[in-house]
Design a binder for these strands. Structure first.
Length: 262
DNA sequence: CTGGGTGTTATGAG
DNA sequence: GCTCATAACACCCA
């Protein structure tokens, strides 16, 4: 599930559920999601502190506390949920943060591919993010275009490479390329100026609506609405969609709307 | 039982 | 250094 729009949704959950509230209790139900921090230290560091503010970079979510910073990554199946402390705990609720005001923030994750970190200071935070490219929502057009031109790989691989651009995942990349009418396998460095501008514009539009929806919405009018159809057809031209594999990820595109550039 | 899934990292080859 | 493929992580579902 989680790409930039989902994580932005989780940031809002964190804001409305826990910002300004004191952490009363930290309950680690599965230490498998903790990275570089023990359950005891997570508890000792956070209990009694207040969640003061939130930030997001790409698919990373940061919860500031005035002390150490809680950093969350959601892998493929992670979520952040606001519950009441007495709500039934679900099977994949891995860490529960009970905060003042009868609320409970829950890190829920089925597969545990990522999890929680607790860097001590800004230096450590920066070190954790030092390989991330610019955030896809915030990146300027010139920087976006420069990043693409300097790469020789396929444009889809480049778009989903978090060290180049942070935030786009498999679904978003396919969606944006379909909207920009670019074949996923085109070489990023071979795109024309017009191609790059179109790609940037469509990325912004797509992100704007996906963030508003809190996810990449599986709407009929979007490519994403059809990727799991048994015989998917293009919502724009009606031709059959192709499904291929790039960099180990399933890739859906329309041979007619996304013509071969060369 | 098998393969696939909205992610990341390590590793090896070219 | 860059690019690409693969495996691994862990769990559910068809």
């Amino acid at each position: 599930m989680p790409e930039l729009p989902d994580v932005e949704g989780f940031r809002k959950v964190l804001e409305s559920c826990a910002k300004g509230r004191v952490v009363r209790r930290v309950d680690v139900r599965d230490t498998g999601v903790l990275h570089g921090v023990s359950a005891r230290r997570l508890r000792d560091a956070l209990e009694g502190r207040r969640f003061t503010g939130t930030e997001r970079h790409g698919k990373w979510l940061l919860a500031r506390t005035g002390g150490p910073t809680l950093m969350l990554h959601f892998g493929m199946t992670g979520r952040l949920v606001c519950a009441r402390p007495d709500d039934a705990v679900e099977a994949h609720d891995r860490v529960l943060f009970t905060v003042s005001g009868e609320r409970q923030l829950r890190y829920r994750d089925q597969r545990k591919l990522q999890g929680l970190w607790l860097p001590d200071d800004d230096f450590e935070v920066a070190r954790m993010l030092d390989r991330q490219g610019p955030d896809a929502m915030a990146v300027e057009r010139a920087d976006f275009e420069a990043a693409l031109s300097s790469r020789r790989g396929s444009v889809k691989t480049v778009l989903t490479d978090q060290t180049v651009l942070a935030g786009l995942g498999n679904l978003l990349a396919d969606e944006v390329l379909w909207r920009a009418r670019l074949r996923p396998g085109s070489r990023a460095g071979d795109l024309t100026e017009a191609d790059r501008r179109r790609l940037y514009t469509q990325m912004r539009r797509t992100l704007r609506s996906a963030v508003a929806a809190g996810c990449v919405p599986p709407r009929d009018s979007w490519l994403t609405g059809h990727r799991d159809d048994p015989a998917p057809t293009c919502p724009r031209c009606g031709d059959p969609l192709r499904r291929t594999r790039m960099a180990g990820r399933s890739t859906v595109w329309c041979p007619r709307c996304q013509p071969d550039g060369s």
